[in-house]
Design a protein around this nucleic acid. Structure first.
Length: 156
DNA sequence: GCCAACGTTGGC
DNA sequence: GCCAACGTTGGC
C-alpha cells in the first residue's frame, strides 16, 4: 500500500463532490504534467490511500481521504475538442495522458490547513511543503499520511 | 541541444 | 492580482 497527495482546486472538483458519490469512481482527469502522469501510470495501485488536497482556496489544505479505484487508462478529455483539457497531440492510438479513478475513502473531522502542515515536525520532509513544489501529485510516506489523518480526525 | 519566451501553478 | 518557481515550446 502506498500513499499519495493529490491536489485539486475545489471550484473545479472538491472532496465534497467526491463524498457525495460514495463508492462511485471519479476520473482524475486534466493532469498535463509528465511527472504526475507517471505516478498515475506507473506507481499507483487500487486501494492506495490519497490525501485529497484543496489548492487555490482559503485556506489550502487536506480536505479528506480518497482511494485509488482503478488501473491506469487514457484520459478521455485529451481527445475531446470541447474539453478545456483537450490536447491535439494526444493520439488515441498512442495516448499521451493517463489517469486513474479515485473514490471516497474516509471523512475527516476538519481540514488540515497548509499552515498547520508546515508547523508539524513530522512533515518537515514532505514534498508538497518544499519550496517551489508545484507537482499536483506527490508520494507521501506512511508516517506523513498517518500524521495528517490523525490531525484531521479521519475516520479510517 | 541550447535557451529565451511564454504559460501555468498556487501561495500570498 | 501579484509574482516566484518551474515546465514547455520552438527557433536556431
Amino acid at each position: 500500500m502506498q500513499y499519495w497527495l493529490m491536489k485539486s482546486e475545489p471550484d473545479v472538483f472538491s472532496f465534497e463532490d467526491l463524498k457525495q458519490r460514495p463508492g462511485q469512481r471519479e476520473p482524475w482527469d486534466g493532469v498535463r504534467n509528465y511527472q504526475a502522469r507517471n505516478f498515475m501510470r506507473d506507481a499507483m495501485k487500487p486501494g492506495d490511500r490519497v490525501l485529497f488536497y484543496h489548492s487555490n482556496t482559503k485556506p489550502p489544505g487536506v480536505a479528506g481521504i480518497a482511494e485509488i479505484a482503478s488501473e491506469p487508462y487514457p484520459d478521455p478529455t485529451a481527445f475531446d475538442p470541447s474539453s478545456k483539457y483537450h490536447d491535439p497531440k494526444s493520439d488515441p492510438e498512442k495516448p499521451r495522458w493517463i489517469l486513474v479513478d479515485v473514490k471516497f475513502s474516509a471523512d475527516v473531522a476538519r481540514l488540515v490547513s497548509l499552515d498547520e502542515m508546515k508547523a508539524m515536525p513530522e512533515l518537515a520532509e514532505m514534498r508538497v511543503l518544499q519550496r517551489g513544489n508545484r507537482l499536483s501529485i506527490t508520494p507521501v510516506t506512511e508516517s506523513e499520511f498517518q500524521a495528517i489523518a490523525k490531525a484531521a480526525g479521519a475516520t479510517l
